[in-house]
Amino acid sequence: MQIFPCPFCGPRDETEFLFAAEAGKTRPEPAPDVSDAVWADYLYGNDAPKGTAREVWVHLTCGEFFVMTRDTTTREVKSCAALPGKAS
């Protein structure tokens, strides 16, 4: 079982977490200007990289969403950071 570090709570078992999204994808807006293809790619086009991946996960017990960088083959967790929110 993997151990993920929640930026709020610290290291916890993976069963407490849920994958949310691939990090770095920007929601295309405003809607009327977005083509069907671009929107479909946003919804369904995931990279699923082999190796280093940046992903958004949520710690279900505290509700904190955060960005985690991890290696999908070795399962090594490289870094974790809270979402920047509107501040970014």
Binding site: V58, G63, E64, G85, K86
Partner: peptide, 18 residues
């Protein structure tokens, strides 16, 4: 309830000023 809370939380933390 759980999944609605997560939809709200994700938008709150990712899109708005938490």
């Amino acid at each position: 309830v759980g999944s609605v809370r997560l939809i709200l939380e994700e938008a709150r933390q990712d899109r708005f000023d938490p």
